[in-house]
Simulated assay, not measured.
Amino acid sequence: MTRPKSLQVHVSFELAERVRNAAERRDISVSEWIRSLLQQACVSVRPTTSCGVAAEQ
């Protein structure tokens, strides 16, 4: 796997707390949960192509 790229996103304090809580409920890291959401968003927007987002194990 190629080296991951950093992606910084600015969100409100409240949204950050909600994201952390959602990841914790799924027993995964925030990064892992957000990567999965990005991958799903890419597939739903362009079902015949990939965004090139690789989920880390």
Results as ranks from 00 to 15, higher is better:
45 V>E: 15
29 S>G: 15
14 E>V: 03
55 A>P: 00
33 W>C: 00
4 P>R: 10
30 V>R: 09
4 P>H: 00
52 G>E: 14
14 E>K: 00
6 S>P: 00
4 P>T: 03
37 L>R: 11
13 F>A: 09
10 H>F: 06
9 V>R: 10
42 C>T: 01
20 R>I: 15
31 S>Y: 07
16 A>W: 02
11 V>S: 03
35 R>Q: 13
16 A>Y: 12
10 H>I: 09
3 R>E: 14
36 S>C: 09
22 A>D: 07
49 T>Y: 13
29 S>E: 10
25 R>Y: 01
30 V>H: 03
10 H>E: 06
12 S>E: 06
23 A>I: 04
1 M>P: 12
50 S>I: 02
47 P>R: 07
20 R>M: 14
36 S>H: 02
57 Q>T: 02
1 M>D: 00
21 N>P: 01
25 R>D: 12
52 G>Y: 10
29 S>L: 03
32 E>V: 01
21 N>W: 06
50 S>F: 07
5 K>Y: 12
10 H>K: 10
19 V>Q: 05
36 S>I: 00
52 G>P: 11
25 R>K: 11
29 S>P: 05
38 L>P: 01
30 V>Q: 10
14 E>R: 06
56 E>F: 10
33 W>A: 02
1 M>F: 09
5 K>C: 12
56 E>I: 06
48 T>K: 06
15 L>C: 13
35 R>F: 04
37 L>G: 09
29 S>I: 04
41 A>F: 06
47 P>V: 04
15 L>I: 14
7 L>F: 14
35 R>V: 05
36 S>W: 05
43 V>G: 03
22 A>P: 00
53 V>F: 11
28 I>H: 02
22 A>F: 09
36 S>N: 05
21 N>K: 09
26 R>H: 13
23 A>L: 07
40 Q>R: 07
7 L>H: 10
57 Q>V: 09
27 D>E: 12
20 R>T: 12
56 E>R: 14
11 V>G: 01
55 A>Q: 07
43 V>W: 02
49 T>F: 08
1 M>V: 05
19 V>L: 14
19 V>W: 03
3 R>D: 14
6 S>N: 11
29 S>M: 05
10 H>V: 13
1 M>Q: 07
48 T>R: 11
27 D>W: 08
36 S>Y: 02
32 E>M: 11
37 L>M: 11
13 F>N: 01
38 L>T: 11
49 T>I: 07
5 K>E: 12
28 I>W: 03
41 A>R: 10
23 A>Q: 04
49 T>V: 12
10 H>T: 13
49 T>E: 15
50 S>Y: 07
22 A>Y: 05
16 A>L: 11
4 P>A: 12
45 V>K: 15
53 V>I: 14
15 L>E: 15
34 I>M: 13
11 V>F: 04
13 F>P: 03
28 I>T: 09
9 V>F: 12
57 Q>C: 02
32 E>Q: 11
1 M>I: 00
24 E>G: 03
19 V>R: 04
